[in-house]
Structure formats: structure tokens, C-alpha cells
Design a protein around this nucleic acid. Structure first.
Lengths: 115, 115
DNA sequence: TATCGTACTATTGCTGTCGTAGTAAATATA
DNA sequence: TATATTTACTACGACAGCAATAGTACGATA
């Protein structure tokens, strides 16, 4: 609804979707739909993760051992797939944070704040 | 030679290679090898662009109208392909800079500086 | 003589994201 | 009561940027 001129391209955010998801999971186990909403809320609608991106991130991260999944019934009786962070996931998240600092440093050599 | 623990993944820098190249070209027209060296120097060896990435960026950007190429003989008589920024390239660069500010803002919601 | 630096081109493959579509149950709205 | 919306996913194919590998060719340096 708020139409920002600028949209974040997937080529840029690529490689940080996992980090965002893991950040959410650090607080508590969660599931796809909830995580999507939290990302949206945290960024004030500036970034809305695509469903396909989200769920394929889950499979990839479970394969890599960063999360584990388990089924649990919601209040309404519907099944949900929850994801829980592992120690490897925590380590990976930490690495990513460090990498981000470096990336930022590098990229900003090439960015001209308009003057 | 300096071996930093952390390496920048291509998934992160993806989408900013073009921006880096354009930043270099803003000063003056240049060619592949020189641009690569400048990126390396500016980042103090923290980011070394791959040759294939660089040259495929040229073709892409020329197709998009962000740069134009022309051949010119170097001192030694060898031919070089120079690239010159266009107005569209300048506009694109500006957009990318704005996008970067937004990206940074978004990503940093999910980054925990270790405490 | 051989290696290194310069300056590319060509081809193929990988991987994260996206587009599109479909399923299905629960809840809200008319 | 009928319909639309929200919740909560799954499946499949395609795209695009980057990487790996290889090759070309010339000049300078050791």
C-alpha cells in the first residue's frame, strides 16, 4: 500500500534471507507464516519475503543442519511445521553477522551519498 | 596474502558488482583489468572481483545501456576494450545507492552486533 | 627459456530466488 | 447460508548472476 519508490532487489538480499529467519528463530521456535509476518513487521513492510523463498530456505537450512523441524498442532487443530534453531545455526548466524560488517565496509567504498 | 577469516559470499555482493564498476567508471572510462585492480585497491584486498564476473557484467551493462564500449590501442600497441558510462548508467548508479541505504536499514534489523 | 603480468573470450554449471499454480481448513463478511 | 479472506503450506519450472575451468596471445622480466 505504501508505495516506496525503491524496491530491494532479490539479488541484494540474497544470502541474507537465511540470516533473517535465523534471527527470528533465536527468540523461539516458529513456523513459516509467523516468520513471514515478523519479518514484515520488523521492517515496517519494507521487506516482504516471498513464500517460496521462505519455504525453500527452510529445506536448505534443515539440510545444512541449521534448523530442525517438528510438527505440532495449533489451537485450531491444524498441523504446523515448526522450526527450531540448532547450535550450528547459531554459529552460522554469528558468521553471517561478521560477514555483514565486512560487506558493508566493502560496498560503502562504492556508494556516493548524494551531495 | 592477508587471510581474513571471513570471506564475502557472492550471494551478498551479488547485485553490487555493477555498482562498483560504475563507481570506477564515474571518474573516467576504463577497462577490465584496470577496474579489477582498482576495486582490489579500494577495498584493500577485501574484495577481489572474479574475471568472469567482471566481463559478464560489462556485456550485461552494455546491453542495458549503462555503458558503451570502444577499442583503443594501449601504449604497447595492444588493443583494449574501454568502457564509458552513459547517462542511463549514472541514473542506475544513483538508484543503486538509494537502494543500498534501504537494504542496509532492512538487513540491520536482523544483525546482532555481539555483546 | 620460462615465468609472470596483461587483457581478455568461451563454455558450462550452480544456486537462491521468483512466478505460477494448487491444496485445504478455519475464520470473517455479506 | 454463501462467499471471500486468512492461514499454512507444497510442487514445479525458469531465470539470472556468479563461479569454475580452460584457452588465447603478447610483452616484459629473470
Amino acid at each position: 500500500m505504501t508505495n516506496n519508490m525503491i524496491e530491494i532487489s532479490s539479488d541484494v538480499i540474497r544470502g541474507y534471507n537465511d540470516t533473517m529467519i535465523l534471527y527470528i528463530l533465536m527468540e523461539a521456535p516458529s513456523y513459516g507464516y509467523e516468520i513471514a509476518k515478523k519479518i514484515r513487521a520488523l521492517t515496517e513492510d519494507k521487506y516482504i519475503i516471498k513464500e517460496t523463498t521462505l519455504y525453500s530456505a527452510f529445506t536448505r537450512m534443515e539440510k545444512n543442519g541449521y534448523v530442525v523441524s517438528y510438527s505440532q498442532n495449533a489451537d485450531n487443530g491444524k498441523k504446523r511445521t515448526y522450526y527450531k534453531m540448532t547450535d550450528a545455526g547459531k554459529a552460522y548466524y554469528k558468521e553471517k553477522c561478521a560477514e555483514w560488517q565486512l560487506t558493508k565496509e566493502v560496498v560503502e567504498h562504492f556508494i556516493r551519498g548524494d551531495e
